[in-house]
Design a protein around this nucleic acid. Sequence first.
RNA 1: GGAUGGGUGGCAGAGUGGUCUAUUGCGGCAGUCUUGAAAACUGCAGUGGGAGAAAUUCCACCGGGGGUUCGAAUCCCUCCCCAUCCGCCA
Length: 424
Amino acid sequence: MLDRKFIVDNVELVKQNCKNRNAPADVDRFVALEEQRRTLQSQLDEANRKANETARSIGKAPPENREVLKEEGRRIRDEAAQIQQKLDQITSESDTIVRTIPNLSHAAAPVGVDDKANLELFRGKTPIPQFDFKPLDHVELAEKLDLIDFEGGARVAGHGFYFLKNDVVLLDLALQRYVLNVLLKEGFTPMTTPDLARNDVLQGIGFIPRGPETQIYSIEGSDLSLVATAEITLGGLFSGQTVDAEDLPLKLCGISHCFRTEAGAAGRASRGLYRVHQFTKIEMFAYTLPSESDNMLEYLRDMECRIFDGLGVPYRVVDTATGDLGGPAYRKFDLEAWMPGRGDFGEVTSTSNCTDYQSRRLNIRYRVKGEKGTRLVHTLNGTAIALSRGLIAVMENYQQADGSIVVPEVLRAWMGKDRIEGKK
RNA sequence: GGAUGGGUGGCAGAGUGGUCUAUUGCGGCAGUCUUGAAAACUGCAGUGGGAGAAAUUCCACCGGGGGUUCGAAUCCCUCCCCAUCCGCCA
């Protein structure tokens, strides 16, 4: 969330930003509530002060005076309780509004209400492959080579689940190992993370665990949800913590399963592995000083490019338009890989600078040695690889006329073979 | 899952209803002494929010939330976490 004071001091800016981001939020109402809230807070402080004063005096007062003072104390506490009640009411309403106000937007982010305004920045090193045969999509390839069991997945858990099988299991693990290796050389701390997290962590990161539109599976009878990304767990990792400025930036990468209900996604591209309820992902996450987050975003984007250039998968880099940014993102770049099966690009990574939008709610701060007080860190996240879509990209781009799939050079050592041929 | 003991400032650790405005030690910062350093001594120090030009001042915070009370770190309820033991288990 944004800083309350900042909103009040920059009403027009915030309203314009909401408009650019296609986010309906009642900023005026918020400002009015905030004014009331401040007034009530002062009144409450004053009432508490009087109550404290009275309470302290009783201990020192002669016994015969005590009853009178107690009565006075009761009266003041009643008064304070009434103010508190009003304050709670107003705070609750203004909290609801402030949660709907998105982060500010980077000045260079393309302005536009939806993804049509997204801007292609550049292409990856690998050219789009020209096949002298009709390329198959990954579902057909998997069928021919016996690599993925979608029907079995549906039987066990419903549509959107699948079994990886045979060589694609090796390919899946090889991709993970390759990506991990790239990240380790860059000094990322590797972590495997919980696949469940508390709802307040989900909310701090910007996910809404319940409600009709939710993308999140929640565990009945508990305060836990299945994570949609390791961004949630890696961001929650430092919630409530204060880190030393000299320890920043922190670069983490987390491997987790990701679960998404994909509510409302019917009709969109959902064939095969593209849009599924469960997949594995390696996520990069960084905590930085505010002055460093712009650079870190470029760095994370470069890492994504290196990973896909290394794999020899063609892609384009897209600068996300304001209206297509999620609430917490200040700026976002996506990599869209070429997917011959659909004859189009499909999103494979996404990296965002969330500035202090997440850290404010999660209360993640840093301290500068010798300086008084603490400040909020900036948080960033980026997909290193989402295995489901990574598999699509590799399988489809590396398919051969004879129906086999060549294993990308960088994966061969991890994979133990250089071609997937199926059993014939 | 059960039992017991715990959760207090950067760390350690005292504090079972009112001089707590939280003892003390270590560590930190500043100063004295010293060529310099160490030691010793003296002093200063938490986080968040509000008022003020500032000195300053007020409020909240002793794991989270709620309760009892004029008054809670302290008593009660509840949740979370940690330790140890037991049970179960890959």
